[in-house]
Simulated assay, not measured.
Amino acid sequence: MPTALTFAGVAASGVDHLNLITVPSFPPLKTGEVLLKTLAAPINPIDLIVLKGGYPVKPKSTIDGASVPGYDGILEVVESADPAFAPGDVVMPKEHGFGTWRTHAVARAADLQRVPRTDPRVGAILKMGACVAWVILADAASALKPGDWIIQNGATSVVAQLVIQMARLRGFKTISVIRDRSADDFTEKKRKLEALGGDIVMSEGELERGEAVDLFAGKNIGLALDCVFGESGQRMAELLSPGGTFVAFGQLSGANSTITLTMNLVFFKNLTFRPFRLSKALAARSDEEMDRMLEHIIGLFNSGQIKVPELEVVHWDDGNPAELSQRLRGAVEHAQSAKIGKTKSIFVMT
């Protein structure tokens, strides 16, 4: 039987009002609709914010008045009443709010983007992981030349791991900054990032204390990628070379964190500061451009040029409902925890 995670209302801990339900049978498709089965869906930071009622784009799908979370993932067409898709096609939602934390869904064909078939793990991180890294680098590439450096924080994240690999393919070098942690954990995380092609891996503490100043001498650091903001972002901005670009695409330090634009940064260094919104960046691309980009990215994974980041796979099956509910809710609870360097969890439907 089809199942779904739903929630109603808002709770400080999103998992408190998350329920696994059995979905009633679907009515016959209307013209322009498709019946889908979900292949994989990630638990992203945006999903956790949605569960707590803090994200402006609300879920668009409801079941018996309760919202279906999950804003990313890949699905397979089971039945189609639209000539654009046929059974077996793989798709992803075009916009936020779709509701991928369910095994099946009915959707308008116009709301879906075709995706080449790939490993479910790749599909789970394709839009809000691989596309973020690829588009940011593609947009910045014209201002960088081979041998230039990119500095990024939150570097154990899926996006940062993909930036390391995609930057290497373009001939760029990376400085990856990770949060302070135990010596053994830092050594292990550093080893893994270097194995992906990371050139310099350091901690926030090292950066704050100025212990790596000599490492930056003579390097043209042309791009800073900030998913944290606040003090961490400020330190990266200070390290940018004249004419560099600072891209803010996250706020892990909180919505009220700030960065000070000093005269040195804005006038003397002539830095460019800009935000990155994935939804806006993808909307600016035509369907043909999206097709080419997705085919290219998935081709990099399928050929082994890019490795899939380490992921925690949570199997969503049709077994015992109580056990399944505990497993799925446990994965969300883990994602909400404050543990440093935790692995991203994804649901894979089996």
Results as ranks from 00 to 15, higher is better:
residue 16 D to L: 08
residue 17 H to D: 10
residue 20 L to V: 05
residue 32 G to V: 13
residue 32 G to M: 12
residue 36 L to Q: 06
residue 42 P to S: 01
residue 43 I to Y: 00
residue 45 P to V: 15
residue 49 I to R: 14
residue 50 V to W: 09
residue 57 V to C: 08
residue 58 K to E: 06
residue 61 S to W: 08
residue 64 D to S: 14
residue 68 V to W: 05
residue 71 Y to W: 07
residue 73 G to R: 03
residue 75 L to C: 12
residue 78 V to Y: 03
residue 92 M to D: 03
residue 101 W to E: 03
residue 102 R to W: 07
residue 104 H to G: 14
residue 108 R to M: 15
residue 117 R to D: 12
residue 118 T to L: 09
residue 119 D to E: 13
residue 122 V to N: 07
residue 122 V to A: 02
residue 129 G to F: 09
residue 140 A to L: 01
residue 146 P to V: 11
residue 150 I to V: 10
residue 152 Q to D: 02
residue 152 Q to W: 02
residue 152 Q to F: 00
residue 155 A to R: 02
residue 167 A to D: 05
residue 169 L to Y: 08
residue 178 I to C: 02
residue 182 S to Y: 01
residue 193 L to C: 02
residue 194 E to K: 15
residue 199 D to I: 12
residue 200 I to N: 03
residue 200 I to F: 14
residue 204 E to Q: 05
residue 223 L to E: 06
residue 238 E to D: 15
residue 241 S to P: 00
residue 243 G to C: 12
residue 254 G to L: 04
residue 255 A to T: 09
residue 258 T to R: 03
residue 259 I to K: 01
residue 261 L to I: 11
residue 264 N to A: 14
residue 264 N to H: 14
residue 264 N to K: 12
residue 265 L to S: 04
residue 271 L to R: 04
residue 275 P to A: 10
residue 283 A to K: 14
residue 284 A to M: 09
residue 288 E to M: 15
residue 296 H to R: 11
residue 296 H to Q: 09
residue 301 F to A: 05
residue 301 F to C: 06
residue 316 W to E: 04
residue 322 A to G: 09
residue 322 A to M: 12
residue 327 R to E: 13
residue 333 E to K: 15
residue 336 Q to W: 13
residue 337 S to G: 11
residue 345 S to I: 10
residue 347 F to P: 06
residue 348 V to G: 05
